[in-house]
Design a protein around this nucleic acid. Structure first.
Lengths: 156, 156
DNA sequence: AGTTTAGCGTGCGCGACGCACGCTTTTGCT
DNA sequence: AGCAAAAGCGTGCGTCGCGCACGCTAAACT
């Protein structure tokens, strides 16, 4: 592969990782869905939808957030009725976080919005470019330059 | 295009936009290059390398940061000798920010590290997938679901 | 039975951010 | 020419999110 390919990706990544990019996207996705659902709380609720009911610590591990951060964000979601706390019947210490029906609905709306935005921007792409891109992006994110393990860059 | 394609991209985006993802990447890139260069200051210095000498306000517009935020981050970079402030000869009010030689060198190192990480992870990709992916990512970031203008999602 | 570990919520300090202020210089209008 | 409005800068200050450390309760282990 050519060096320019790396540079091209690096550039795109730079703009993609901006705070404002994330903020803008989440603002669009959660627009009109209430104060509680925003850039910070969405990942918690969405993650919880994936994992199913679980502890704050486990959810934190799943979405790479500190346990206490999850707790605080969950407070907001609970106050808004999007998330429910219930004692773990199997463990007296634990508190299970669970998405309420209302919360699930909002997550569904948000995800549809996101999918729609993505699909709209990919509509004009020729041939199977969109599908190929999706697979490549998935792979890139999973195995890409964000890995935790070693991979000392060394830079020559 | 299929709905699953949109979902697939949405998932990847979710993990890509995590704070920890950005933090981890920048930690790798700036490792061992001094305290001053980190996740926060790097975009400023890198952006300034692109724009050439300019005011804090202009740089802020270029990298989508508040003017005062640029100023504060520039303070750190200036103290470390990676950035220089000089009065604008054409405007008595203005202060030009300019990258020093040392700063330019560090940016170059960082960019090479990033490119190397990217290229390494793309090495095993078959055929021209990497080049295609690069172009697609570029286009996706530019025209994608992050646009500022309208594009009311509507969701239904 | 007693100790160690795991889980939870919260107080607190730290750091980043952006608004608003005061100041200087330029611009533009009369 | 002269004065008002605007543009540029740095900084004080309030706000907010984060994560560590603490105290507490309950499970697990010896």
């Amino acid at each position: 592969m050519t060096t320019t390919t790396g540079q091209e990706i690096a550039d795109a990544l730079g703009t993609l990782l901006r705070r404002t990019t994330r903020a803008r996207l989440y603002a669009h996705l959660t627009e009109g869905l209430g104060e509680a659902l925003d850039e910070l709380t969405y990942p918690v609720l969405s993650g919880l939808t994936r994992t199913g009911p679980c502890s704050a610590a486990d959810l934190g591990r799943a979405v790479e957030l500190d346990r206490t951060t999850v707790t605080r964000r969950a407070d907001r979601l609970e106050r808004a009725g999007l998330l429910r706390r219930e004692p773990d019947p199997a463990d007296g210490r634990a508190t299970l976080l669970a998405v309420t029906d209302e919360g699930r609905e909002l997550i569904q709306v948000t995800r549809q919005r996101l999918a729609a935005r993505i699909e709209r921007s990919l509509d004009a792409w020729p041939g199977t470019d969109a599908e190929v891109f999706a697979r490549c992006l998935r792979r890139f994110v999973d195995e890409g330059p964000f890995a935790d393990d070693g991979a000392d860059a060394g830079q020559g």
